[in-house]
Simulated assay, not measured.
Amino acid sequence: MRRFLVLSVFIAWAGGCSCQEKPTAPATPTDAAPTVSPPPPMPALPETAPQAPAIPEHALELHAQGRKQGEAGQFDEALKSFLQAREVAPTWPIPLYDIGLTYLHMKEDARALEAFEQLDTLVPQGVSDSMRMLDSLRREKAGRVPPGTLREFLEVEQLKDPVEVQHRLEALTKKAPDFVPAWEALALTADKVDEGERLIAKALALEPDLDTRGQLLLHKAALLKRRHEMEAARKQLQALIDDPNMPPNIVTEAREMLAAPESAQP
């Protein structure tokens, strides 16, 4: 299940051809401008990547170059590298994700939205957290949440102090009550089962994107297991497995949770 911050919600900026979500930690960004926030993590290739057509070596090189430039806060140069990688490998989704995220850091939200919409067309079931990015940017465009909310959330994800993270997330839910990722993050880090269930219900009521909905329902099943309501948890997981619209990563995790011994705690 996707976790927040210390539980590795996202992948660090890393080499473009890794298929695992455990790359080595990147070097600290060295952007000279003190006001530039560190870039948020980038996704690794999806697990199905080895079955896809081979990615041209030049595209891999351009993409790796772009990520190094992004680490240093050189967003203009990184964008050029990602765009060139996309030209060389137009069906490879990862550079398109990076293009959207780079535009987001450049505060060109309209272009970021366009990139994530293109990614949604290319890979309807998403890459990493692309569905959440797209949904959040659409909510900003529609005026449901204030402009820049997603960017602020990405900054919160880079914080190390759990107490500060908690306070910032709570403030974000008050500032932007229709912003799903903040409610989701609070739900996934809640200590008490009752509080976790309340926050999950709140997030689900906001009609999140499909991947986020799946993650929330997985966590709901985990909380049911903590209550020792095993049959209810089993039904929840089976419903996810049987849902033809659920992304493969959600279905896979639901199967793993369903197959786990009942004595195992989430």
Rank of each mutant, 00 (worst) to 15 (best):
S128C: 08
P181D: 05
V163E: 12
E197S: 09
A112E: 06
E170V: 03
A205S: 13
P208V: 04
S128K: 01
E152G: 12
H167P: 00
Q166M: 10
E108K: 14
E207A: 14
L210V: 10
M106T: 09
L137H: 01
R132K: 07
E140I: 12
F116E: 04
F153D: 10
P208M: 10
F179A: 06
A171Q: 06
E164D: 11
A176W: 05
R132S: 13
A187R: 01
A142E: 15
G143Q: 09
R111D: 12
A110C: 04
P208K: 06
L216N: 00
V123Q: 10
A171S: 04
E114D: 14
L150G: 03
D178W: 02
P147A: 11
G126S: 07
A182I: 09
L199W: 14
E207H: 13
E114V: 07
L217D: 04
A222Q: 14
A203V: 02
E197L: 13
L113C: 03
D120T: 09
D109A: 11
D161L: 04
A185W: 00
K192G: 04
M106W: 12
T189A: 09
E195M: 11
G126N: 07
T121N: 06
E164I: 15
V165K: 06
E157P: 01
L210W: 03
A176I: 10
K160M: 12
W183Y: 02
D178L: 04
D129F: 04
E164H: 09
E197V: 05
L159P: 00
R138Y: 01
P124K: 09
T189K: 14
E152Y: 07
L154Y: 04
W183K: 06
A203L: 02
T121D: 13
L122F: 07
P162M: 13
R132F: 02
E152P: 01
P147C: 02
E155V: 13
L188Q: 15
K202M: 08
V145N: 03
D209V: 00
P181Y: 01
K107I: 00
A221Q: 10
G143H: 14
A187V: 03
L154S: 07
T121P: 02
V165A: 15
L150K: 05
D209A: 02
R151V: 08
E207T: 14
A187Y: 00
K220H: 15
R111Y: 12
F116V: 03
K192M: 14
V193H: 08
A142G: 13
L119S: 02
L223K: 09
L188G: 00
A201F: 00
L210G: 00
A112M: 08
R139N: 13
K175T: 10
K141W: 11
V193E: 09
S130C: 05
L122I: 06
V165T: 15
A115I: 13
R213M: 06
P146G: 08
R139P: 11
L218T: 01
L223Y: 00
G214T: 01
L122Q: 15
K174H: 07
V163L: 13
V165F: 15
E152I: 05
